[in-house]
Structures are given as C-alpha cells and as structure tokens.
Nucleic acid binder design. Structure first.
Lengths: 123, 123
DNA sequence: CGGCATCCTAGGTGATACTG
DNA sequence: CAGTATCACCTAGGATGCCG
C-alpha cells in the first residue's frame, strides 16, 4: 500500500472521493462501460441503459463531457445524429472501473450471503 | 474486455452498479481504506475522517458490517472499546479500490484542466 | 466511549410536456 | 432524433440531544 499514514488528509486521502463524486452517481459508470465497447448514439444509450430517463442521460453525458471523459460529436444531418465516445482519458478510467466490475462479479454472492447471515443473526 | 454485448442486462451489466450502490456513498470507501491500514476504534475513525458525523459513521459501519466487509468487535470493558477491522472479503475489495485511487491521483489534474477548458469554451 | 432517536434540509432523480 | 424546461419527490446526510 502506498499510503502509510492514518489520517485522511485533504491532498491525498480524498483523491478517491473526488472520483466517486464524479463517477459514483447512478449512471456514469454504466455509460463509461458502454462507451468502452464502442461509440454510441444518444438513443442507443437510452435504449441500452434500462431505467434511465432522457433527462438523466443528457445530464450525465454533459458532465462526463465537461470532465473530459466523453467526446460528443454532432453530425449536421436531418434527422440530427449525435455520437458519444470515450476520450483517451475516459479509456484510462475503464481500467480501474473494470477492476471494480470484476470484483463485483466475483463477490456479489459473498455480500448477499453475508447479508442473509447477518440479518438472520439480528432477527 | 470480458463483456462483449452492448445492452446492460440485469445479470451482468449491473454488477458494478451493485458495488457502487454499497460503497459509492460518501464515506464507505474512506472507511475501507483506513481499515485497510489497520484496525481502528470508533473514535479513531471519527477523528481520522474529517467532516463525518457520528450518525453517518455509525450507519456506514453498520452497513459495511452487514455486507461482510467489516468486522466489529466489542470489548467488555469500562469505558467500552469497539474495534473495527476489514474482513477477508473487505481486504479483497481493497485491491480495486486502490486501483481507482491510483487513477484518481494520476488524473485528477486532467479532469480539472478539462473542466476549465470546457467551461471557458462554453462561456 | 460508543452509540441511538429525532428532526430537518439540500439536491439528485423521475415524470411529464414541449422544441429545433 | 436529440434534446430542454418545469415540477414534484424522496432520501442521503447533517445537527442536535439523550443513553448505557
């Protein structure tokens, strides 16, 4: 482990919180993962992400674009066509996100089991 | 990439959302990281994590315990002493969390720059 | 020391309707 | 197709006070 001190200092310990503040919301990582596969159009994302509202998709994409993780390309055509893709920075984020995803798949059952066990003991 | 399809299915695509639903909150990862260093007492955590309320520390620890990520040990003494430490499962989570932390430290400036640039262009 | 109970607010999110 | 605008809600989280 690179961090050896105990306190959560402003300059170091909160780095991970900074990421989570941006990507820890309800939809960002989902979008990043999807765009990790390939470029998507707006409605492709809308259809692929079950449960997202048009509003939240727009807002989340705007934030990701602002943070330099996603690139938005408008094609001047009728009907309009807008493509979204990961930037270079966005692709680097895919690595740790994938690591977290792998952990999730490997241990989701462990958590579920722990819950059931714990809840049974408390009852 | 292990996932080759595009849709976010219930069985696969939401695994990462499951993790974020649990540790994507404001304090969980911070606690996990601190406990990754060593066992902490309640008030040690309270002092180490700047800005956390007693209420949220308790609630977060309870959830982490319930999910099998943290082990809580009560020592029958006066005054009472309660130790918190990572479980085996909790320690495995430390790996991807650390990966995310590394990414954060490496790219926080990239995001900040992207923001400034983007905001300047919009203005 | 290590909590829990209560109250309360801010903002993240959803639903719906409208537009270039 | 790809948004924007408005409203309304709900809950994560903070503040405070009491307890074993």
């Amino acid at each position: 482990m690179s961090v050896t001190h105990t306190e959560v200092s402003k300059t170091d310990g909160c780095a991970i919180r900074e990421v989570l503040d941006r990507v820890g919301d309800k939809w960002s990582v989902l979008i990043v993962v999807l765009l990790g596969h390939r470029t998507h159009r707006f409605n492709e994302l809308h259809r692929s992400i079950e449960g997202i509202s048009q509003r939240m998709l727009t807002l989340t994409l705007r934030t990701l674009e602002r943070d330099g993780l996603v690139k938005r390309t408008v094609h001047a055509s009728v009907p309009p066509r807008v493509d979204y893709e990961l930037t270079e920075l966005g692709r680097t984020l895919l690595v740790p996100v994938q690591a977290l995803d792998d952990w999730a798949r490997a241990h989701r059952d462990d958590i579920r089991t722990a819950r059931v066990t714990h809840d049974a003991r408390v009852s």
